[in-house]
C-alpha cells in the first residue's frame, strides 16, 4: 500500500507538468488578441504595443511559458489583465464558492443516484427499475442551462419563492449557513445535481445488478447470512465503482459549471472562467484552468487511494 502511495504521488509530477503545457498551449492556440477585449477598439496601436510589452505578450511563446511556469512554482499566477487583480486573489474567492455549490450538487446527486440506482438494481426489469432508469436518462439528457432557466421561470419569476441570482442578499462575502442564504443554493444545486444523479443511478444500477448475479452472493445466502448482511456485501463490492464515479463527478462540478454559474450569477470558478473567456484574460484563464485541472488530478489521486483502501487488490495493478 505504501509503495503504491509513493508511486501514485510520483505520477502527479509529470501529470502536473503536462497539465501546465496543455493549459498554456490551449489558451494560446485559441484565436484572438489577448488585449482585444480590454483595450478599447479606438486605442492607438502604440498603446496596444506598450501594454503587450507590459504583460510580456511581445516575447516568444516558449519564453512566455517558461516565465509563467517559473511564477506558478512560487505560487504566483499573475495579474488579471482585464481587472488588474491578482489571479490568486480571484481564485481564493471563487473556489470556495464553487466548492459550496459542487458539494451540494454532489451530495444531492450521489444520494439520489445511489438510491435510484440501488432500487433499480434490486428491482431489475420491474416498473420501479424502469421509472428510476427513466429519471436517470432524463437527468443525463436535460441540458443544464435549459433546466436552470426553467427552474428560474417557475420558482423565481412565476412563484416568487426562490431567488434567481447570487449567493445571498449580501453576496458571497456575507455568506452564512442560514436559511436566507441557503435559499440561494436551492436552484443551482438542483440544476447541478441532475447530471451526476443520472450517471450515478445508471452506474449503481449496473453494478448492483452485476453483483447480485455473482456466485458469491449465492454462496453468502447458502452460508445462511441474513439478507441485510448480504446487502452489506453487495454495497461493499459496489462502493469502489460508486466512489470512483462520485469522485469524477465532484471533479467535474468543482470545475465549475460555466453555464449554471452564469445563469444563477454564482460567483464561482465557472463565472470566473466565463468572464476570463469573454475578456480574453489569458492570465486569469490560464490560472483558473490550471487550478481546476490540479483539483481534478488531486481528486483522482484521493479516489484511487480510497478505492485501494477499500479494495487492496487494486494496488497490485
Amino acid at each position: 500500500m505504501f509503495a503504491y502511495l509513493i508511486r501514485r504521488i510520483l505520477y502527479i509530477i509529470p501529470i502536473s507538468f503536462g497539465v501546465t503545457v496543455l493549459v498554456f498551449a490551449l489558451v494560446h492556440m485559441a484565436p484572438g488578441d489577448p488585449l482585444s477585449a480590454v483595450v478599447p477598439p479606438d486605442a492607438p496601436e502604440e498603446m496596444v504595443q506598450e501594454l503587450k510589452k507590459a504583460y510580456g505578450f511581445d516575447k516568444p511563446l516558449p519564453i512566455q511559458y517558461a516565465t509563467w511556469l517559473g511564477r506558478i512554482l512560487v505560487g504566483d499566477l499573475g495579474v488579471s489583465i482585464a481587472r488588474s487583480r491578482y489571479v490568486t486573489d480571484e481564485l481564493a474567492v471563487a473556489v470556495p464558492n464553487t466548492f459550496i455549490l459542487a458539494a451540494g450538487g454532489t451530495l444531492l446527486g450521489f444520494t439520489l443516484g445511489a438510491f435510484f440506482g440501488g432500487v433499480a438494481g434490486y428491482f431489475q426489469g420491474r416498473w420501479i427499475d424502469k421509472l428510476a432508469t427513466g429519471i436517470a436518462i432524463t437527468g443525463i439528457s436535460v441540458p443544464h442551462y435549459w433546466l436552470a432557466i426553467v427552474l428560474v421561470i417557475i420558482f423565481s419569476v412565476e412563484m416568487n419563492v426562490l431567488p434567481s441570482i447570487g449567493m445571498g442578499p449580501g453576496g458571497s462575502t456575507a455568506w452564512q449557513w442560514n436559511a436566507e442564504n441557503l435559499k440561494h443554493l436551492v436552484l443551482p444545486v438542483i440544476t447541478l445535481a441532475v447530471i451526476p444523479m443520472g450517471i450515478i443511478t445508471r452506474t449503481v444500477r449496473a453494478t448492483v445488478a452485476e453483483i447480485l448475479n455473482q456466485e458469491f452472493v449465492q454462496a453468502l445466502h447458502a452460508k445462511g447470512l441474513l439478507n441485510q448482511q448480504v446487502l452489506m456485501h453487495v454495497i461493499k463490492n459496489a462502493a469502489p465503482t460508486m466512489l470512483s464515479v462520485m469522485g469524477l463527478q465532484l471533479g467535474y462540478l468543482l470545475g465549475g459549471s460555466i453555464l449554471v454559474e452564469t445563469v444563477f450569477q454564482w460567483p464561482g470558478t465557472g463565472l470566473l472562467l466565463n468572464s476570463a473567456i469573454f475578456e480574453r484574460d489569458l492570465p486569469l484563464l490560464q490560472g483558473t484552468i490550471l487550478i481546476l485541472a490540479m483539483f481534478f488530478v488531486l481528486l483522482n489521486f484521493l479516489v484511487d487511494i480510497v478505492q485501494t483502501a477499500i479494495d487492496p487488490r487494486m494496488a497490485r495493478g
Partner: peptide
C-alpha cells in the same frame, strides 16, 4: 437573468 432578478 436580469429580468428574472427584477421580477423576483
Amino acid at each position: 437573468a436580469r429580468t428574472a432578478a427584477l421580477l423576483s
